[in-house]
Amino acid sequence: MVPIIIIILAIIVIAIVWYISISNKLNRYIVKIDEADSGIDVALTKRYDVLTKMMDTVKAYAKHEKETLFEVIQMRQGMSLEEKKDANEKMNRNMEKINILAEAYPELKSSENYKTLQQSIVEVEEHLQAARRMYNSNVSIYNQMLVTFPNSIVANNKHMQKKEFFEAEESKKSDVKIEL
């Protein structure tokens, strides 16, 4: 009788330890995803800052352009993933406008200030890509853990939900092709 009780107790202890370890692992990934999300915030803000400088530079050169109007981008702390995607999309469209205008104004394209800003935008784009890839990579691992048995038992019990990816947009990939 005693050995059976010991075996049952051992199984219960193992199950509790396992539950706690899986729970902690999932929680750690939530923290990592939050950190990666903050990384996207930082990178987006940098991109916004450089883009704003670029827009100001372009406006100074293309004063008479009626189509110079750039989309208004609102950046604030604590933006949702959807809002961030939206802001990023607007930045992409503004970037496309800047590129078109730069083609029309050779003196703008050849100015030192514009060249420096172009290099900076490539740099911040690369940082944004890194932050996005890190976020998506962590989300991917987390989502896989949620649906994999027996982790799914813990995840369901704690009502954990799949996280959304911060997708790469086709238009953004073209930003990297800026001619220097």
Binding site: A36, G39, Q129, A130, A131, N136, S137
Partner: peptide, 28 residues
């Protein structure tokens, strides 16, 4: 650091002081 390239993760171990820097340097 686990990167998104499964084949790369199988071949190499990646260690970094700051995770995002690994993604910055090691682009696809």
């Amino acid at each position: 650091v686990e990167l998104e390239d499964i084949e790369f993760n199988k071949l190499f171990n990646v260690y970094s002081q700051v995770e995002v820097e690994a993604f910055y340097v090691l682009t696809p």
